[in-house]
Amino acid sequence: MSAAHAMQSELPLLEVRDLTMRFGGLTAVDRLTFAAHSGAITALIGPNGAGKTTVFNCITGFYRPTSGAIVIERGDETYRLDRLAGHRIARDAGVARTFQNIRLFPNMTVLENLLVAQHARLMRASAFSLAGLLGLRRYRDAEEAGIALARSWLERLDLVQYADRDCGTLAYGLQRKIEIARAMCTQPALLCLDEPAAGLNPRETTELSRLIISIRDEFGIGILLIEHDMSLVMGISDRIVVLDHGARISEGTPAEVRSDPAVIRAYLGEDDTANGEGGR
């Protein structure tokens, strides 16, 4: 596997330590510890309701964890995501995300969606839109750079002809691609993909796995992946973390995980079928 090239190199980009998330009496994530590295694809897998999306929601500030720490090391800065204000998770810590059930801004055009993702930079350049309104040079340059970045992603994903269409009107497969493009337009250090292959046909899935690998190799960013398509996961992941009932039951390279009896038991439910579903 392609695992080796990035793994041993440096300190982890993302460190999740003893993360616990409870909803009332339900423990969705239970003292979970794992790490993700720059330039590597880390997959988070597990049966339905294992708590994968909850982990994503904690990382991206949608939930405040009950306890534990989520740390991003970016440059010289250390960010505690479990405490950071919502907009700083993207702006400062450099975390971007896509969703299982796509969350584009449906009434904005594709291009606008990609520009919103560059908001922090454009807002600064436009001096809170004053310069934008007056059409000042500095802002126009920044806006042009923003559009250029958006265009490069549209070209790469073959979306240029949809640039001025409202996102809500586009086909599902296109929306999935736009969501990834938008996440990349925030120029993230960590890209979290929540079931990016859901609803895609085999050809689109192959295209997607190529895209994810190219993002890793070209930008050297960390990629965190939740996915049910096992051939995709096994094919592109550098490292896999397996969750069941909110706890980590296995971790390693695809080959290691595949042969781990604990994983097989969790997926096939050898001795506790009854608990296989329902508990998150």
Binding site: A96, R103, F105, M108, E112, M123, T186
Partner: peptide, 17 residues
């Protein structure tokens, strides 16, 4: 753009910085 984004999905807007 930020205003329209917040109008449509505040959490996603925050996640766009």
């Amino acid at each position: 753009r930020a205003q329209r984004a917040c109008e449509q999905d505040q959490k996603m807007a925050a996640l766009s910085g």
